[in-house]
Structure formats: structure tokens, C-alpha cells
Simulated assay, not measured.
Amino acid sequence: MSVLGAMIHKAGAGPEPIPHKELTVDNLRDALKFVISPSAKHAASRMAKEIHSEDGVTRGVESFYRHLPLLNMRCDLDPSRLAVWWSTDHCLKLSAFAAQTLADAKQLDMDSLDVHRTKDYNSRKQVSDPVSGGASAIFWTVTHYYAGIAEIF
């Protein structure tokens, strides 16, 4: 069952989703009759008003920040700063300021540091259509699920 279709049905703006294997002329006709009914039109109008009144940009930004891996982004020596370096020798995430301070004090060799990335994202992945896009997202989730759990520990 489609999640979006189930949400629309629950709100009263659409019929119960019909699995494609069960689609017949009769149940399609009944679904179309429901969609043009006054109750469905009223529910759809109510949903449109709710969607229009939402501040999607603000909610999207809030969601983005809520899901940031903040513990992995912070400097181990000064958590108010962003970690940009990783010291394998000292097993520390370091801010640029902390790394430079330690290097100036001859406690650290800047050449021994690696760039610290909390997570790498492939922002150039091309998706040609919704089906392959959805399939690739599901495949990525399934294949990276256990690796994500392992990273926690």
C-alpha cells in the first residue's frame, strides 16, 4: 500500500489505495466516484489549506539540524568548535584552532593530521526516473543499514 495514498485516504480526501494486482474496472470506477464526491473535495480543500499554511522551509531546516551527527562534528578539546582534523596518533578530532595551537607548542605535527569528515555524501548521483530513484534509495538503505549500526560502536 502506498504511504501517500494511505495518508490521503486517512484524511478522507481519497479512496483506500488499490494494490495494482487487485485493480479492476469496477474498483477503479468506485475510486473515481469517491474522488469527485463532496466529502472528498471538502477533505482535499482542508488538506490544501493545511499544506499552504505550513512553513516547509523552516521545518526542513529544523529537521536537517535535528539529524546532524553533532557529537562526531565537535572538536574533542574544545566542543564549541567544529572538528576539521583527525589525529590518528592522539585519537582526537581537532578544530583548526586546536590543531594550530598544538602545532605551535610543538605537541603535534600538522603533516600527521587527516581531514576529518563526519560523513561523505555523493551529491552527483544521477537518477533517471522515480522507480529507479526509489529502488536505489531502498537498495542503499538496505546495504548500508548494518554498516551504520557498526559505526555507532
Rank of each mutant, 00 (worst) to 15 (best):
L4M: 11
A6S: 12
A11S: 08
A11E: 02
G14K: 08
E16I: 06
I18N: 00
P19F: 01
P19L: 04
H20Q: 13
K21D: 14
E22G: 01
L23I: 12
L23G: 03
T24G: 05
V25E: 14
V25Q: 10
L28H: 01
R29F: 11
D30S: 11
A31T: 01
K33E: 08
K33S: 05
F34D: 02
F34K: 02
I36L: 09
A40R: 01
K41T: 00
H42V: 06
A43M: 04
A44T: 00
A44K: 00
S45M: 10
M47S: 03
M47Y: 03
A48G: 04
H52C: 07
E54V: 10
D55E: 10
V57P: 08
S63G: 10
Y65K: 10
R66D: 15
R66Q: 13
H67I: 01
L68M: 12
L70T: 15
L71G: 13
M73P: 09
D76R: 01
P79Y: 03
V84H: 03
W85V: 03
W85T: 00
S87Y: 02
S87W: 00
T88M: 05
D89K: 10
C91I: 08
L92Q: 06
S95W: 03
F97I: 07
A98N: 14
A98E: 09
A99V: 11
Q100W: 04
T101I: 05
A103H: 11
A103R: 00
K106A: 05
Q107L: 07
L108A: 05
M110D: 01
D111E: 10
L113H: 00
D114W: 11
D114V: 07
V115A: 14
H116S: 06
R117D: 09
R117G: 07
R117S: 12
T118C: 15
T118W: 05
K119N: 10
K119E: 04
Y121W: 12
Y121R: 12
R124W: 06
R124V: 11
K125L: 11
Q126G: 04
S128V: 15
D129S: 09
D129N: 13
P130R: 03
G134L: 11
S136V: 09
A137V: 08
I138K: 07
F139L: 09
W140G: 02
T141L: 15
T141Q: 15
V142F: 09
V142L: 15
T143W: 14
T143H: 11
Y145F: 15
E151F: 08
I152N: 05
